[in-house]
Computed example of a mutant assay.
Amino acid sequence: MNGLNQVRDAVLEALRRAGVAAVPAFEGAAKRYPGAVAAVDVAAGAGRAAGLGGYLGRRGDAEQGLDREVYGMQLETEITLSVRAERAAECETAMETAAQTLLRGLPSGLRLEKMSWSGIAWDRTTGMFVREGKAACRAVFLAEDDGGEGQLLDFILKGTMRR
């Protein structure tokens, strides 16, 4: 899974844990849902290695008796959210929950740097109220070598579980 999808999925999961129905933007922007729904998308601004050439150091794995090299990468991202609902009050409540989640509910590898929201508006296309938001975040990814042959494993967003 690439970095942008990992960020999007982490935001979707955080919103769902907070009680906001959330879908990827390509699945939900124009659909009708009961209650409020947040459509989430992510765009990248720039990426860079963390540490010298991405190298962060070594980590020992006592259980397997392995010594692994750890690498890091940072990605500047912009998350876009469109919160929609048939009722203005539902749209406002979901937006407030989404904003609080971006402030305090993201995984440790996703740091909010800036957030802005538009005012509530009526969307004639969907027949729903909408509040649109943008959040600039710094995403931190970690990867380890396999501990044997020196092959680098996938970069995983810090603070998320491996699948």
Rank of each mutant, 00 (worst) to 15 (best):
residue 55 Y to M: 02
residue 61 D to F: 13
residue 82 S to W: 12
residue 154 D to W: 10
residue 57 G to R: 05
residue 65 G to M: 11
residue 39 A to N: 03
residue 134 K to W: 09
residue 68 R to S: 04
residue 123 D to H: 14
residue 149 E to I: 07
residue 55 Y to L: 02
residue 70 V to Y: 01
residue 131 R to L: 04
residue 112 L to I: 10
residue 115 M to L: 14
residue 22 A to S: 05
residue 128 M to N: 12
residue 106 L to A: 02
residue 129 F to C: 07
residue 67 D to Y: 10
residue 2 N to W: 11
residue 3 G to Y: 05
residue 83 V to C: 00
residue 14 A to I: 06
residue 90 E to F: 09
residue 140 V to Y: 13
residue 151 Q to R: 15
residue 56 L to C: 01
residue 105 G to F: 04
residue 42 V to D: 00
residue 48 R to E: 05
residue 81 L to F: 05
residue 73 M to A: 14
residue 53 G to E: 00
residue 3 G to V: 04
residue 95 M to W: 09
residue 105 G to T: 02
residue 45 G to Q: 13
residue 100 Q to W: 07
residue 134 K to I: 10
residue 61 D to E: 15
residue 92 E to Q: 07
residue 31 K to P: 01
residue 83 V to T: 02
residue 132 E to A: 14
residue 82 S to H: 13
residue 109 G to F: 10
residue 15 L to N: 03
residue 28 G to L: 04
residue 67 D to R: 14
residue 29 A to P: 03
residue 100 Q to K: 08
residue 73 M to G: 06
residue 1 M to L: 10
residue 91 C to V: 05
residue 71 Y to C: 01
residue 95 M to E: 03
residue 142 L to P: 01
residue 7 V to F: 02
residue 90 E to A: 08
residue 35 G to K: 03
residue 38 A to T: 05
residue 31 K to F: 13
residue 41 D to L: 10
residue 110 L to I: 12
residue 64 Q to M: 14
residue 123 D to R: 15
residue 111 R to C: 08
residue 43 A to L: 12
residue 160 T to A: 06
residue 62 A to T: 14
residue 124 R to S: 15
residue 152 L to T: 05
residue 39 A to G: 01
residue 5 N to C: 03
residue 36 A to E: 00
residue 138 R to Y: 09
residue 144 E to L: 11
residue 25 A to C: 10
residue 61 D to T: 15
residue 124 R to T: 14
residue 108 S to G: 15
residue 127 G to L: 10
residue 67 D to A: 15
residue 45 G to F: 12
residue 68 R to Q: 09
residue 149 E to Q: 09
residue 44 A to T: 14
residue 163 R to I: 09
residue 127 G to K: 11
residue 48 R to V: 06
residue 163 R to S: 10
residue 68 R to M: 09
residue 85 A to F: 05
residue 84 R to Q: 02
residue 90 E to S: 08
residue 7 V to E: 02
residue 81 L to T: 04
residue 136 A to F: 08
residue 5 N to V: 04
residue 158 K to C: 07
residue 53 G to D: 02
residue 105 G to V: 04
residue 68 R to T: 08
residue 107 P to M: 08
residue 136 A to Q: 14
residue 71 Y to T: 02
residue 48 R to T: 09
residue 99 A to C: 10
residue 157 L to S: 06
residue 67 D to S: 15
residue 57 G to L: 03
residue 134 K to H: 11
residue 150 G to V: 06
residue 38 A to R: 00
residue 162 R to T: 11
residue 93 T to E: 00
residue 62 A to R: 13
residue 101 T to Q: 00
residue 74 Q to A: 13
residue 144 E to S: 13
residue 150 G to W: 07
residue 117 W to Y: 15
residue 110 L to P: 03
residue 104 R to D: 00
residue 131 R to K: 10
residue 127 G to W: 10
residue 33 Y to P: 01
residue 14 A to W: 05
residue 3 G to T: 05
residue 120 I to Q: 07
residue 23 V to Q: 05
residue 6 Q to G: 01
residue 36 A to C: 06
residue 73 M to W: 15
residue 40 V to I: 11
residue 136 A to G: 12
residue 113 E to L: 09
residue 134 K to S: 11
residue 44 A to W: 14
residue 147 G to I: 12
residue 34 P to A: 09
residue 70 V to L: 00
residue 113 E to Y: 07
residue 106 L to R: 01
residue 123 D to F: 13
residue 11 V to K: 00
residue 109 G to Q: 08
residue 107 P to N: 07
residue 79 I to K: 08
residue 124 R to F: 11
residue 47 G to V: 05
residue 52 L to W: 08
residue 139 A to G: 14
residue 35 G to Y: 04
residue 11 V to L: 03
residue 142 L to V: 06
